[in-house]
Amino acid sequence: MLPTVSNLYCAEPLVFVDLETTGGSLGVHRITEIGVVEVGPAGVTQWSSLVNPQQPIPFFIQQLTGISDSMVRDAPTFDVIAHDLLARLDGRLFVAHNARFDHGFLRSEFKRHGIRFQPDVLCTVQLSRAIYPTERRHGLDALIERHALVPFARHRALADADLLWQFWQHLHNAHSADILRGHIDQVTRRFRLAGDIDEDTIERIPAGCGVYVFYGENDVPLYVGRSVRLRQRVRAHLTGMKRSAKEQRLAELVRRVEWTGTGGEIGAMLEEGRSIARLGPAHNRVSKARRDDPRGAPWTHPGAIAIEEADATTGARVWHVVDGWQFFGTATSLDEAARLRSSAALAVFELSTYRILSERLSRGLKIVPLGVAMLVGAESA
């Protein structure tokens, strides 16, 4: 006997969603059909609508879904149903198979019409992999076969959404609530993040190397970190994916995030050290003094230098400006690097910069003396 609906909605209402589209490319293809199964303490309701995509449906898509141009010709366009659809989805856990696809298409359509759409998302492909790690196939056809689900019209939106609801019921019948809750928490992607941080904020963060700073109430610095995948790392901090208890406590305090793209890993290390020393964030480990720490070690170059590094994402070159064991920042050209140094005050010894460069400068880093760079710039002008 299946558990009751009141035991199935996991302390938050659910929507099982499936879309049919004219193709698989966001920004190019459009939605042709939407199916929604709403599940909550009040029970289960179903809703679906064809959607006029305002573009032709490719023949092979028509063959797959059975949805033809003539079927959608008089259907409402997305803007007509947008607010009614949002009312059904808003405030509910968004459950879909290959959820990135369905969520991405809907988010793009809502955004096109000036509507913000950022539900928490649960992918049933990831959930199936988490619960059945020894199985190789986790597509919808595999779930139908493995769990005796009953399709009534494959590749139609409401029918496929109903299959996900059937799968959800099967899981709650086959596994304990505690086990399921752990897997669901693990794979759910939380888009309601922290303070003023939302998914739009996260999307503005560079994908490559850089440094991030979390701030709490009253703009108190909490934590400085670096990553070679900056956007991914910040999102992981805040979305509950594989976090430790310490990271969970930190995430609950975060209200704002700042970031600096550094192009390469050396720049990220230098920027992280400088930011920790400048901000003194409460959740960073304090660097302990060592016996061999220098007290104002002599600078080993006649003046400022620019350390050249390739941007790990784009391949473009960047230059990290250092003088007197102080890091002044990252520039995208040697002219900019020279201006960055000339506009700053006298260099101050930074222990973090000394430690990083004393280890790394002997490893073949490409160094340009900024005095030479300024001369070259003046001659070319």
Rank of each mutant, 00 (worst) to 15 (best):
F349W: 12
F328H: 14
G329A: 09
K366S: 11
I31R: 01
L334H: 04
L365K: 07
Q169P: 04
L50W: 12
T353Y: 09
E20R: 06
L149S: 02
S352M: 04
G216S: 09
R274C: 00
A306R: 03
G91T: 10
A337D: 02
Q54I: 06
E38W: 04
M374S: 15
L85C: 08
E350L: 11
A331E: 04
A159C: 10
M71V: 01
L93I: 11
Y132C: 02
V95W: 06
I31K: 03
D198T: 05
G24Y: 10
I31Y: 07
V322C: 15
A306K: 00
R341D: 03
Q126I: 00
E145Q: 12
G139M: 06
R88I: 07
F105Q: 03
G280L: 12
R243K: 12
H175K: 12
G114I: 06
A289H: 03
G35F: 05
A75K: 09
A99T: 04
L164R: 06
I61Y: 08
L93H: 01
I34C: 01
Y215Q: 02
D74L: 13
Q54L: 15
G225C: 12
Q169I: 03
V211Q: 02
T332A: 14
R190M: 08
A345K: 11
T353E: 03
G210S: 07
V51I: 15
A344Y: 09
G27A: 12
I205E: 00
V211E: 03
D162W: 12
G43L: 05
Y354T: 00
I184Q: 01
D79G: 06
V286E: 09
R136I: 10
V80Y: 10
E199C: 09
A148R: 13
A337W: 02
